[in-house]
Amino acid sequence: MTGSFKYGVSTYSYVNDYGSIMTLEDAFDHIADTGATGIEILGEGQVEGYPEPGKEWLDLWFALLDRYQLEPTNMCSWVDMRITLNRNLTVEEGAAELARDLHLAHRLGFKFLRPKFGVLSHDLIPEANWEAYVERNLDLAAKYDIVMCPEIHAPTPIKHQVVDGYIDFIERTGTKHFGLMVDTGIFQNKPLTHWGSHQINEEARKHMEFLNGIAVNPEEFLDIAKYVVFIQAKFHDIDENLEDLHIPWKPVISALKRAGYSGWLSSEYEGLRAPWRAIDQVRRQHVLLRKLEREYDEGTFA
């Protein structure tokens, strides 16, 4: 039997769930209520005073971690190559942005940092300097024991030059502080009707074909499993019968288990934004995923 998954939630799941952005404590409360033990955040969006939060906010952060018994999992960050419109970032500037977020992630207790690099194409090929940014920060990441992990996100499939480039970097450097994050939206195999608060029309489908699902075969996860350090459990709609309308969780869970993955599954809800809906949807997902894991472990996985 493989190890058990660890369950967490991204606070991004709850954006606008009350009709306005809920407070940090609201998010902690709803995450803990699912039985999850991990919390994932968006650094720029949810750290007051980013990138230098004040003492009052830091005190609140650690008090909430203690009160709700949650573990900081992953902090999402950005390396914005076009922060100035007349030129791209230099290597030194990009590396400094990444170092800034490593420092903050360490202060807040996170062990994973998702840097999102600027991209050059619709299939999310990252800018050429990403390797230099990361390599200049490997020693700092090792000092803080943080793993930097860019995400494999639709419309990028597993069998793609983006993934190959990240794996080549890991092999070349031998680092233990850079890995892959898989966003389960790559396994979506049915078209969405809503993307967040947006109802999807035919024009959107034509220009953003990934909204129909890129349907990566979950078996392909086994080919990259040894490089995967974190999973964002993306989903959009789970009905009252605990059937996900877009993500085929049974083959996904089977592949993760057979690959020996025992890390975080961090819920990331990106479905229809309506009051209270995300709270209910995240609860449904946690019931569904735990049910499937239990059935797999008990040998009743049909």
Rank of each mutant, 00 (worst) to 15 (best):
D244M: 08
E52S: 12
G38P: 01
L64F: 06
P72A: 08
I238K: 09
I231W: 12
A204P: 00
W195R: 09
A141C: 00
V119H: 06
D237H: 13
E56A: 15
G8M: 03
S4F: 09
D26K: 10
L289V: 03
I146C: 05
Q285G: 00
G196R: 05
L65R: 01
F187V: 07
K111D: 09
F5P: 02
L104Q: 11
L242V: 11
V91E: 13
M1H: 01
V91R: 08
G213V: 04
L288D: 00
G54R: 01
S267L: 04
E151L: 09
F62R: 03
Y144H: 14
P251C: 13
T193Y: 00
R172C: 04
E209A: 15
N201D: 15
P51K: 10
H122S: 13
E93W: 01
A215Q: 08
A63M: 05
R100W: 00
H286V: 01
L98S: 07
P218E: 02
G271C: 04
V119A: 07
V91F: 02
L113F: 12
I21C: 05
D101T: 10
M75C: 12
T184M: 13
M181W: 00
L113K: 07
G271R: 02
A27H: 10
Q281E: 07
S13R: 01
Y18I: 02
D123C: 10
T84I: 12
N74P: 01
G38C: 11
E270P: 02
I31N: 04
L89K: 05
A128C: 02
P126D: 03
F187I: 07
K6H: 14
L120C: 05
D101M: 07
L104E: 10
D123N: 14
M75V: 10
N129D: 15
I170M: 15
K190N: 10
E209S: 15
T300L: 14
R107L: 13
D139K: 14
K257A: 12
S262W: 05
L60M: 11
I247G: 06
P251F: 15
L256K: 04
F117Q: 02
T193L: 10
E93F: 00
R277N: 14
G165F: 04
T23H: 03
E135V: 08
S121I: 10
E40Y: 03
K159W: 09
D139P: 00
T300C: 11
M208S: 07
A32L: 04
Q281N: 04
G263F: 04
Y227S: 06
Y227C: 06
R67C: 03
H103L: 11
T11H: 08
A27F: 06
R205N: 08
K190I: 05
A32K: 15
H122E: 15
D139N: 08
Y261Q: 02
H103Y: 12
L108F: 08
L65N: 06
E268P: 00
T184W: 14
L138M: 08
R87D: 02
G185T: 09
A99S: 13
L288Q: 06
W78R: 03
A215H: 09
Q281H: 05
Y18H: 12
E293C: 01
P126A: 04
N241I: 07
E127C: 11
M75S: 09
I247K: 09
A278S: 15
K6L: 13
D101Q: 14
A63L: 05
